[in-house]
Design a binder for these strands. Structure first.
Length: 315
RNA sequence: CCCCCACUAUUG
């Protein structure tokens, strides 16, 4: 059996994955078991070869052959599955881990939460954060932020707000990123006045608004066609010494364009240039799209050419 | 130990 484990180790290192099943068969006949060290090496190799499902298969077979994976092995498998985008499968493995009385670590939860965040599964991410706390671990500010942002992106503002309030009671109060994430979510939902209130609240805290903060707010106001307010915010940021960047301008240009205010949008492009910001693909695509919608094909064409002259490749 | 990294903004 030791020899078989040694072979698994070697075959994995040599990426001779096809031969591994034969070794497992041999082990099975002999009634031997796969040891954790060999399994770990095999999983790592499958990972490097981008074969997470094969890693999963190997994991199962090893369990059948008497291997009792520890937390680190489960974590490794989870990591591979998430890398491959198999978050549902990863979650099943997590449940099996609990069934096996294998204690998840903080890292396990971190993997699960960030994995589901990648998949835009805000509800799952939030649930797993609950389980994390239940298991006695304290989520840090990055974990909270990731979950809040994800909830915001899927429209679960109720839960996002609740977690935000919870955070204030913890050792990790909301930071700049937390506020920015929520401001962004509120803006996307058209809740611009709540966004303004949150912005006011932010200024009462240690968190300093940055260019992202202002851009989120301006984007929300622009979508809601609150252009006067948006321009006020743009001026405010400049007064405070925060330089708008292309994203900031693009947010407002896009809002103006969508509202059919193309003269103003074009004027803002000029402002943008005079402030040393170079229009980019976002600027041009947004303008061209809005100009097209109102039939100003000639202006759209001009911008298209300007775009090419500036070295922006239309895509 | 520190740093870094991991969480946040704009078009189609």
């Amino acid at each position: 059996a030791s020899t078989c484990n040694l072979m698994i180790h070697q075959l994995s290192g040599a990426r001779e994955f096809e031969l591994i099943p034969y070794v497992l068969d041999e082990l099975k006949r002999k009634g031997g078991s796969v040891n954790s060290a060999s399994l770990r090496i095999a999983l790592l190799s499958y990972g490097r070869a981008k074969r997470p499902l094969d890693a999963l298969h190997m994991f199962y077979l090893s369990c059948q052959l008497g291997c009792q994976p520890n937390t680190n092995l489960f974590n490794l498998l989870l990591e591979l599955l998430f890398q491959g985008g198999y978050c549902h499968t990863a979650f099943r493995i997590y449940r099996q881990m609990r069934r096996n009385n294998c204690s998840p670590s903080a890292y396990t939860f971190s993997l699960l939460i960030h994995g589901f965040r990648h998949a835009r599964r805000g509800g799952m991410a939030a649930m797993l954060m609950q389980e994390m706390m239940h298991a006695g671990f304290t989520p840090n500010v990055v974990t909270y932020n990731a979950v809040i942002d994800c909830l915001g992106k899927v429209g679960r503002l109720d839960l996002a707000r609740k977690l935000f309030e919870d955070m204030k009671q913890t050792a990790f109060p909301p930071n700049q990123v937390t506020y920015n994430s929520l401001l962004n979510a509120l803006g996307k939902q058209g809740l611009w006045s709540e966004a303004c209130e949150l912005f006011a609240e932010m200024k009462q805290t240690e968190c300093t608004p940055d260019v992202v903060t202002y851009s989120c707010l301006i984007n929300g106001l622009g979508r809601a066609e609150q252009f006067d307010r948006a321009v006020c915010v743009l001026e405010e940021m400049q007064e405070k010494g925060c330089r708008p960047n292309a994203v900031t301008y693009n947010s407002l240009i896009n809002g103006l364009g969508k509202a059919g205010k193309l003269d103003e949008a074009c004027k803002l492009v000029e402002d943008m240039k005079s402030q040393g910001c170079t229009p980019d693909m976002f600027t041009y695509n947004s303008l061209i799209s809005s100009l097209g919608k109102v039939g100003k094909t000639d202006s759209a064409w001009q911008f298209f050419q300007e775009m090419r002259n500036k070295g922006c490749v239309p895509d």
